[in-house]
Design a protein around this nucleic acid. Structure first.
Lengths: 132, 132
DNA sequence: CTTATTGCAAAACGTTTGCAGGTTT
DNA sequence: AAACCTGCAAACGTTTTGCAATAAG
């Protein structure tokens, strides 16, 4: 893989925008530092960075892909109220338990819990209490 | 929700094609019993069935959505060799452990392990042994 | 009679790709 | 010089939508 200004910028943005940005968000912020950058290039570079194992792809059902600079396997909580995506630690024991001794070979893991983040859970609880 | 022949057929197909069919697969097999059926109607009905909680949507990264008649939360193993999707039991303890006491509110759970199913894992192991 | 549902076709969406020209090594 | 990488625009595959017509209650 050859050096390119655009790829380096994309990688930097995935690391800086650490709240799991989408390709579109990466494109918008990178465009300021590299006028003329194209969205296709952002997609191409994200793909090669994922393939090279320097970035992880985070798939959330019904949403555009997001990208993550945290490399070890972990899960995500997607908040349906504020749209935030937060990390969930996931040890390899958790996966081993899920497999329950099956002779399968796992190379990757995509776990997304859907619901309310701590902030939104607290706020909706408060609102419900106020109504009563 | 009103009765409709098309919706009933879609539900029946999700149950019959129990290997997690895509909308396209449901459409193709349902078309034989209901000529003139349209793909848009299949999508619309799958969405209302999911919303009504009668069917579950299974999202696998980079693939069209699949549909599942098994309602309780569970995970999936997607085999990159043969394309099969198999269920993985997942008890609520597993999720509780992941959340590690966080005060969040989880309404749904999407877990996909990517790798090789038992059959393909065995075959690739055998092929590797034969090469040696 | 009212309103949900349909088939159809067009559009939306996120993403990929072909190409001609520019960069990196 | 040989790859690789880029911007652009067109195409892709999946899914949604607007519409006028049909079917259900």
């Amino acid at each position: 893989m050859r050096y390119s200004k655009q790829r380096e910028l994309v990688l930097q943005k995935v690391r800086a925008l650490c709240d799991h940005p989408t390709a579109e968000e990466i494109y918008r912020t990178a465009l300021r530092e590299c006028p003329g950058l194209s969205l296709g290039t952002v997609y191409r570079n994200l793909n090669s960075l994922v393939e090279a194992g320097r970035v992880r792809r985070v798939s959330i059902p019904g949403q555009p892909d997001r990208f993550d600079h945290t490399l070890p396997w972990h899960g995500h909580l997607y908040c349906t109220r504020c749209g935030s995506v937060t990390d969930l630690a996931m040890d390899s024991d958790a996966i081993r338990r899920l497999l329950a001794g099956r002779r399968v070979q796992v190379t990757d893991c995509a776990l997304t819990l859907i619901g309310l983040c701590e902030g939104c859970a607290a706020e909706t609880a408060a609102a419900a209490a106020a109504t009563v």
